[in-house]
Each structure stands twice: as C-alpha cells, then as structure tokens.
Design a protein around this nucleic acid. Structure first.
Length: 427
RNA sequence: GGAGAGGUGUCUGAGCGGUUGAAAGAGCUCGCCUCGAAAGCGAGUGUCGGGGAAACUCGACCGUGGGUUCAAAUCCCACCCUCUCCGCCA
C-alpha cells in the first residue's frame, strides 16, 4: 500500500505508473473521496473541540453547584451532529482504504517499461545447455519411468494437479530442501524459520495477496484461515505491527514450507507434469532492511539464489521484469529461469523482489533510526531460494541419460546417499 | 470442548465517569559531572490523522466493534486474543 499523502501529492506519477503496469485506476474517484473526507474531518473535529471545552465547563459548573441544564441540552445536539459526521468519515475511510489496497507499487526507475513478458530484459546467463545424443525426455516420463513419480495415485488421493513422490523421488525432494537450507543458513547468513502453513486474513492483506487475489488461494470454510500460497506471507508477518532496532537490520530469514495455490485462472496451462501444482514446496529467502540498503540487498539476494543453481550445475538466465510483468507489491523483480531440455526453453525457478515499504506499510513494520528520530518503515525483500519442485524437474531433465537414469550432481550426493537414480527396472 | 483469570505507552505497572495522553518505576536520547565509565543530577522520550510555509495547533487512539452519557481507559453488550486448570489428542 502506498502512503495516502504521497498518492495525494503525486497523482500524475500514479497515473503514469498504472499505465506502465497495464492497470486501471479511477483517480478522479480518489480525488473526490479524499477531499470529501478531509472536509468532514475538519467539521467533526471543530465540533469535538467545542464539546471538549464544554465538558470541562460542565465539570467546573457542577463542582460549583451552578445550573448547567441549558449547556447540556446544547451539547446533546452537538454530540448528535458529531455522531453523524463520524459515521460519514468511517464510510469514506473505508472507501479510501479499499482504493489504496488496489493500487500497485510504483516500479523503481531502473525497471524497463513494457507491455508483456517479451519486454523483460535478460541480465546475464550462466553455464550452457547440456547436449544429448538422444532425444531428452520430459520429467514426467522420466519420473514415472523410474517409478519415483505417481500421478494416478495422486488423483485418487486428492485430484488433478497433485503429485505423489515415491522412493528416491521423495528423497530427492527432501534432499533439495535440506541442501538449500544448509547453504542459506550456514553460508549466506539467513536464520531458518519454520512457520505455520495456515495464515489468517490480516497476514495475507499485509503482503498484498488480499483483497485482490482471494481466488488464487484455498480458504478453510468457516474460519479465518487460508492455506499459505508462499511463505513470504508468514515471513513478512513475523514482525507485523512492530518496530525493529535499526542496528539489527538487515534481518535475513529463510523458510522451507509447503505452498498451496488454487491456480484458478490456469485451467489448461501446464497440465502435464509437476510445473504447476496445487501444492508445492519452496525455500524462501526474506530480508527486512533499511531503505538505503535495500537495492544492494536485492542484488545479494539474487546472487544467493544463483549460487544454488551454480552448485547444482544447472544452466540458467536472470531476467529483469518489465513494468507489465511485475507482481502487484513489487518495485523491482528479477526472475531466475532454469533451462529445460525437453521443452528447449527456460522455466521460472525463482523470483526475487524488492517491495520497498509497500508491504511494510500494510503490515506496520517500522524501525527506529539512531538519534531518536521518527520511526520509518523498513523495506522488505523476498526471493525463492529455490522452488523445490521445479528444481526437481530441472535436475531430472538436465542430468538424464539415455537409459532413463538420472545422475545426481556432486553437491547433492551427501543429501541423497546415492550417485544415480536408476531408470526403468522393468524388462 | 468445559471452568477461571486477564488484555493500558518500548517494558513493568497504577488508574472514585469529568485538566488522565494517561501516576510511578525501568529503559532509551540529550546535557551536567568524570581522564573515561558507573553512580548521581537536569531535560526530553508514542502512533495516526486534520489545519498551517513554519513555530505550532486541533482531533483520535488504553485488545476489537457496538451501546449508555453533555462527557467513557473507567459503566453495559458482543467478539478476538493470552494465561491457568480439566477433557481430548499426534
């Protein structure tokens, strides 16, 4: 959420931003609400000041035994008027808040203006695609062939867009999560968090998932709880409504969690395989920083995610997203895309964003600058480090051999206990 | 799920319906003292919003939302949360 005063004074900038992002905002509606609201507030507060004065006077008169009947009657009327004004203010406040909640963050000046994913800018590329002297298989063929992936069972248990991992397939998922967490906690300086996987409405509103994206999540009927769509929600809410010590910043945390998405608008897309599931696992990196350090920390965050892919020896590229492709809360986003041999294209495996004060303002996360100055909002950053299921996909496809077996990269072997996942054992 | 206790500022903790934005203490910031530190002394120390160029001023906020009243942290109702005991349970 943007600051009300800032929006009021930079309407032209907001309008340009909305255009760049391909969003539509009714700014005239905002302007009207804002002026109306301030008018009624001024009126109500003048009356309240009058009432406060009169209350003191009444107290004094009663003490002296004077008659205050006339003043009481007058104040009764004033109170009624105040009540009506307050009700109007409540309505206008709510409308204004609803408007502000739908305004996306302002992109950083370094973000390219664009209309679609085609306008994203490739920043760098690491490694190269593996070469095969056979036609590389898709991960679902490899997984089902090796008996480590079972979609039929998942359909019985839950339905479409779920998966069952078996044997070394399940172990690979677990090994990847452990590997990610070990690198981030022992080498990159993140503190590991294991949060609840269910989150409440306030937490989701704080990161900007609600009210706009309710349809993309699973809601537990009759409760205020939702299945978390990303641990960005939990990690932001770690410090919701609190003030942090300035010298404790930046605070760097990471978490492994399951994530749940209803993928309401994705019918028919990526229906085969593991790419787009209702449930997946992700290791998330998250930072709370001071404003002046947040863009340096964003670069470091991306580097932390890249380090994982480099250790695994997976070919990838880093994309700077254009205005049209960025998330609602983000001021600047890098996507990391890993090579997928079967498709002959790159697939998103991490998304790293600086939301500046956008989430901090909604979530009430401040810090106290040294020297007793007024508290300010922190900047929050988030990035996948990495999406576990998608890394599983990349690993199978990039390190497959002609017989359907998959070679485990060196870095992962201590976590796997084996060097190779055998291909089909059936004759 | 049943019974009880409680939710006040950064923290601890007061608060007969009327100068209580809120006592007191701690913490923190600044100053004095000191070679320096501690102790001691002095001053300051919430957030949000309206008006104002600013100094400043006005208003709101004592878990949340309603109600009573000229006036509510203080009375009434509902809800939420925390703690203790019991039950159930991985």
């Amino acid at each position: 959420m943007l600051d009300l005063g800032y929006v009021r004074e930079h309407l032209d900038l907001i309008e340009k931003m909305a255009r760049d992002r391909g969003a539509t905002l009714n700014l005239e509606h905002f302007r009207q609400l804002d002026t109306d609201r301030r008018m009624v507030i001024t009126s109500a507060e003048r009356l309240k000041a009058e009432r406060n004065k009169a209350s003191e006077e009444i107290a004094r008169m009663k003490k002296c035994g004077e008659d205050c009947t006339a003043l009481l009657a007058l104040m009764k009327q004033v109170s009624d008027k105040i009540k009506r004004d307050d009700e109007t203010i409540t309505v206008l406040d709510e409308q204004l808040k609803q408007f502000l909640l739908t305004v996306p963050n302002i992109p950083h000046t370094s973000v390219p203006v664009g209309k679609s994913t085609a306008d994203n800018v490739e920043v760098r590329r690491w490694g190269g695609p593996p070469s095969f002297d056979f036609k590389p298989k898709a991960h679902w063929e490899l997984g089902e062939g090796a008996g480590i992936l079972d979609f039929d069972a998942a359909i019985k248990i839950a339905g479409a867009r779920f998966a069952v991992y078996k044997g070394l397939g399940a172990r690979l998922e677990r090994a990847l999560a452990n590997f990610f967490l070990d690198v981030h906690t022992r080498e990159h300086g993140y503190t590991e968090i294991l949060p609840p996987f269910l989150v409440n409405t306030a937490s989701l509103t704080g990161v900007g998932q609600l009210p706009k994206f309710a349809a993309d999540m699973f809601h537990l009927e009759g409760t205020d709880l939702w299945l978390t769509p990303t641990s960005e929600v939990e990690l932001t809410s770690l410090y919701r409504d609190s003030t942090l010590e300035a010298d404790a910043l930046p605070i760097k945390v990471c978490a492994w969690t399951a994530c749940f998405r209803s993928e309401a608008g994705a019918a028919g897309r990526d229906t085969r395989g593991l790419k787009r599931q209702h449930q997946f696992q992700k290791v998330e990196m998250f930072k709370f920083t001071r404003p002046e350090q947040s863009y340096d920390e964003l670069e470091a965050l991306v580097a932390n995610a890249e380090a994982i892919l480099q250790r695994l020896g997976l070919h990838y590229r880093v994309m700077l997203l254009c205005t049209a492709d960025m998330g609602f809360a983000s001021a600047k986003t890098y996507d990391i895309e890993v090579w997928l041999p079967s498709a002959g294209e790159f697939m998103e495996i991490s998304s790293c964003s600086n939301t500046e004060a956008f989430q901090a303002r909604r979530s009430g996360i401040r810090f106290k600058p040294p020297g007793g100055k007024k508290s300010e909002f922190v900047h929050t950053l988030n990035g996948s480090g990495l999406a576990v299921g998608r890394t599983w996909i990349a690993l199978l496809e990039n390190f497959q051999r002609a017989d359907g077996s998959v070679v485990i990269p060196e870095a992962l072997r201590p976590f796997m206990g084996v060097d190779v996942i055998p291909g089909a054992t059936k004759t």
